[in-house]
Nucleic acid binder design. Structure first.
Lengths: 228, 228
DNA sequence: ACAAAAAATGCTGCATACAGAATACAAAAG
DNA sequence: CTTTTGTATTCTGTATGCAGCATTTTTTGT
């Protein structure tokens, strides 16, 4: 059972001086995880009283967290009727992937110019680690590293707005992708695309990196649309 | 003085019996306007007690509104110290314009495929109206219609995610652009670009529309960077 | 028996109250 | 005169209480 004790524990586990994270902030992360991982399915009403009791917090910080997530687009606010977990239609997902694709294409072009060799090496390290997880058929860790790589490449572009918006879209899509279990052959194809990505990045091939990122996300639609 | 009466008045001005907009929602819009119009300058601390009293509302809905705006990126939450109006560096603005440019280029390409003739005519109407305002040197209305046109074109793309994110970036940039008073020659150049935009849209010239939108936003940096 | 209206219940929205942290100020020591 | 420490005040963070709206259940009339 989720409890206040686990909520108030610092995320990084360090024994830092004092708790500097506000409860509503902790709740935002906690609720976001619950939504992404499917504990709160789309259409579920977020009962303030019930949910608050379950998490061991009062309604006030909970409500604040819900407002934050509403602006993030994960929940929907219905006047006088509370909040419900937002349901994304297949078209919504397709739309998000289209935008994400465009953004990553941009990130790829910028990254080739702005990234240092050391930073590229770090992405390579993530990639190698991911390949290991792939060979071990460790889907969960593969998936996590996969996202980390995309995020890392976006970071290389050194555009704060791009990082922000990419993270937001990534979050909204996480729930979908988290569910979508593609078959071995599609998984292999995705891995091949990642190999191309790293090669293009190391060669600082702007057009090449941008193209493969775009293709990767174009194909992503094929990989997830079945599970909708 | 801002008062509860003006806040609780319905946005559409109808005399409907019941108020269907929640106070925190009204506050979000009100605060956003205050930030954009410069009533709350960057770096200003949002004093809950004082601001609440000034607006005639209690702290609870005010705090909820602030959390919402924080997720929107207009204010920053500092633990135990409240919220401050976010300050954007010149690089931040440049970054946002870069992303906005990419998104509008995408919107332009999509719009040529998806827009109906009637919708295009509506944009043309907005454009003509804007030209009138330009000739009348009515900067405020010109500016407003300008934004409306960009928003309308994005809408034509019929991509909900694109609309969302574009609106968010527009909002963040509104404050900057609201201040930035370009000279007559730059203004004229912007208007010429808009003429090109409409022409390309009516010709459903994907490459052309995308190009001019990109150029327009590329030049936008020149127009605002002086005022930073 | 069915439909419509009325009452009752539960939940959201807002305000207020209280506790703890941060800052400002003042006094004392070097 | 400067610096440091103790204290007071102010503000944020959280909990709780109350009023109004939605929905469901019950009751009443046909």
């Amino acid at each position: 059972m989720d409890e206040i004790s686990s909520l108030q524990r610092r995320a990084d586990g360090t024994a830092g001086p004092i708790r500097r994270t506000a409860l509503h902030d902790t709740l935002v992360n906690h609720l976001r995880d619950m939504i992404i991982e499917g504990d709160l399915e789309p259409g579920t009403r977020l009962h303030e009283g019930q949910l608050g009791e379950q998490l061991g917090v009062s309604r006030t910080p909970l409500r604040e967290a819900i407002k934050y997530l509403a602006s993030e687009g994960l929940v929907e606010l219905v006047p006088s009727r509370g909040a419900v977990v937002k349901r994304f239609s297949p078209k919504d997902v397709h739309d998000m992937l289209t935008v994400l694709r465009t953004l990553e294409e941009l990130a790829g072009r910028l990254a080739c110019d702005t990234a240092s060799d050391a930073e590229i090496a770090q992405v390579r390290a993530l990639h190698d680690e991911m390949i290991d997880r792939y060979k071990a058929a460790d889907r969960l860790q593969y998936y996590k590293l996969n996202q980390d790589i995309h995020t890392a490449i976006v970071r290389l572009a050194q555009n704060s707005s791009l990082v922000d918006i990419h993270a937001m879209l990534q979050t909204r899509l996480k729930r979908i992708r988290f569910i979508g279990h593609e078959g071995p052959e599609k998984w292999a194809a995705a891995v091949r695309e990642h190999e191309e990505m790293i090669a293009a990045l190391e060669a600082r091939d702007k057009a090449g990196l941008s193209e493969v990122l775009g293709r990767h996300l174009f194909n992503a639609w094929d990989r997830v649309k079945a599970s909708l």
